[in-house]
């Protein structure tokens, strides 16, 4: 695998500037940069410096954004996030520092008011289990099954404080997002016998993945439930077109 050597200067020039028979789809002329006029060379020189500076700044920003918090990124936090967000946002903590070791299932139930005015409460439905069934033996799982509820619930947890209160606009949006995901998936089922959904309740069931068979670790296999308060369902939570009901 030795690199090819260039015999003649012409060959070298052809290599550098394209020989017209090469791969450059836009064609290249064998015109060395030194043969250009001064203004042209200035333009190219300035452009080269600009590209070098832009690339350096961009890479520094990307690095500071993905690296762990450090002296510089703490000092220049605002500058970095101004540059990075929204289009260069990225996160490469793939299964790191530790992979998730719990199965988090989102379960829902509803209070349905029938047409005759009687209310009834449905049983719990495990939406995550339904996602799991859709993914089982599926070589191409859809984002609707693999990401929608999973990441929606992550968003919900991240945008709510320990008391379950929403933090800012994001928290409020996340809550509405969960309500809408639930209603989009369950409304038809719940109101199949008529009536309308008045309130819904969401809970998460967190169960640790049992440790590997060779491990001596002891982990409680009791699931932990986190129950959210009942949420009133408004028309804004319903799929479009369902408002007419």
């Amino acid at each position: 695998m030795r690199p090819r050597r260039y015999g003649s200067p012409a060959e070298l020039t052809a290599w550098i500037y394209g020989n017209g028979a090469g791969m450059q789809s836009y064609g290249d002329e064998p015109r060395p940069l030194a043969a250009l006029s001064l203004p042209s060379r200035i333009v190219i020189g300035v452009a080269a410096c600009a590209v070098a500076v832009i690339v350096a700044i961009h890479l520094a920003m990307m690095f500071l954004h993905v690296a762990p918090q450090n002296t510089l990124s703490k000092q220049q936090g605002a500058l970095i996030s101004d540059y990075v967000y929204p289009e260069y946002e990225q996160n490469w903590k793939l299964f790191a520092p530790n992979p998730l070791q719990q199965n988090v299932a989102v379960q829902v139930r509803a209070e349905v008011r029938a047409e005759d005015g009687n209310g009834r409460t449905t049983g719990w439905t495990d939406l995550t289990a339904r996602d799991g069934r859709a993914i089982l033996h599926n070589p191409l799982p859809s984002h609707t099954e693999q990401n929608q509820l999973r990441r929606g619930w992550e968003l919900f947890l991240n945008s709510h404080n320990a008391q379950g209160r929403p933090i800012g606009t994001r928290g409020e949006l996340a809550e509405r997002y969960i309500r809408r995901i639930v209603m989009f998936r369950m409304q038809g089922e719940w109101t199949a016998g008529g009536g309308r959904v008045e309130r819904i309740q969401v809970r998460s069931r967190t169960a640790a993945v049992s440790p590997p068979p060779w491990s001596t670790e002891k982990i409680s296999d009791k699931p932990v439930y986190r129950v959210q308060p009942w949420w009133q369902v408004t028309t804004a939570d319903l799929p479009e077109g369902a408002n007419s009901q």
Binding site: F95, A96, N98, P99, Q101, G132, S215
Partner: peptide, 19 residues
């Protein structure tokens, strides 16, 4: 930095998540 990557079991866990 993760303890599971240090004790050599990390790969086991994602394979046992429902998703």
């Amino acid at each position: 930095q993760g303890s599971r990557w240090q004790d050599g079991t990390a790969v086991y866990y994602p394979m046992h998540l429902d998703y």
